[in-house]
Design a binder for these strands. Structure first.
Lengths: 204, 204
DNA sequence: TGACATAGCAGACAAATGTCTGTTTTATGG
DNA sequence: CCATAAAACAGACATTTGTCTGCTATGTCA
């Protein structure tokens, strides 16, 4: 292969490896070699190891396809969480669909119990939460004023903004067309399911 | 290894492989063998190939670490995409942060080029897109009326609703406080970067 | 009990893969 | 031009890995 100016091929190799990692299949040393037409494995290996030393890439071990993007090593591992569905007898159950649906999330709160829920209704419109949005919820029994929470009011799971006033819990919609819920006064069975930590919406 | 009832070990192997795939490092045949204490490679291999036949797993090729999760319905292969940042000289560049950030997405559009972008400004407020939200964009040169798109107008990347009227392209905000952009008339260099396919917001 | 499918074992081979030592060629800056 | 660092090459070795053929052991069910 023709000699290139210092750093030129290195950059291309980095891009190549990065794309492969992003595509889900990190290359082997020899795949890099072939992709760049090197006649020696060491040519590819030298570049790869240099990229590791420079902090551009990380290597998880001496095994095959073990080059990774460095920040991904530090970041919390991806986690599959279940999509919950309708409410039945006061308990959230998994959605009816036969193949249970999972959502992949990466959260810094590792070890917390998470679940996902499809939002119904427009009561949180002004908070940028639309019907059909998926909220990712961290299960917790309490909340702070200002948190967006998922609560079980009667048989229905609702997304609302949590507020404590005069020692009373209030659940506020973010839409003038809806009224706040004050659990004790309304008399409906109430329980806090958790706090919304992420909102997702698939467009079209 | 002790003999187990039919399907029992198979299920455990599936869970093991699934977790490894989700963790970003699909196992080799022999890694499965060791993980389950098989004394023969073939034992692991038989289970793996059976899982492929049953449609529980997929294999992309005869190379190492090539077992994958089959595409089930809409959400399948986890994919890391890069967070793009500010605009420089008419081209979107990777964010300034030295270690570029990545986001994990699962899309039914496999093979498409995706990128992510942090939204600035409140021009799409009424579409439920707030400042700080992350939009995930599929790179494409054209769009249909009604699509939410990311376009390069001058030096700035903007999120707007795309509309064609009388053969003219219009970019509409979803907030009365902002005005539509009509590229040709405004004279600013214009190019369509892609279509927004998902919106994400981390709460708190 | 016996047939049959599944689970598991043994051993092997070719190719793929990570790694190594040493040499040659080229770009670059003084 | 020369010294130096980087780029590329050559050849090799030990493992790892995918794959194969043939065999034994066990659970299931009629």
């Amino acid at each position: 292969m023709a000699y290139t100016s210092p750093g030129e091929t290195r950059k291309k190799i980095y891009d190549f490896v990065r794309d492969r990692i992003l595509g889900g299949m990190p290359p082997t040393t020899r795949e890099v070699q072939r992709a760049f037409g090197f006649r020696a494995v060491q040519s590819a290996r030298q570049h790869l190891e240099k990229l590791v030393v420079d902090g551009k890439l990380a290597k998880t071990g001496g095994r095959s396809r073990s080059y990774r993007l460095p920040e991904f090593g530090k970041a919390s591992p991806p986690q599959l969480i279940a999509m919950l569905g309708r409410v039945q007898a006061g308990e959230l159950t998994e959605a009816m669909e036969d193949p249970p649906e999972y959502i992949m999330v990466q959260t810094r709160f590792d070890g917390d119990e998470l679940f996902a829920l499809a939002v119904e209704g427009e009561s949180m419109l002004h908070a940028g939460i639309l019907p059909g949005d998926i909220v990712i919820v961290r299960r917790q029994p309490t909340a702070n004023t200002g948190d967006i929470v998922v609560a079980l009011v009667g048989d229905e799971a609702t997304v609302k903004r949590y507020r404590e006033r005069d020692g009373r819990v209030e659940l506020h919609p973010e839409n003038e067309a809806f009224s706040p819920i004050i659990p004790r006064e309304d008399g409906a069975p109430f329980s806090l399911l958790g706090k919304v930590i992420e909102v997702r919406r698939t467009v079209e």
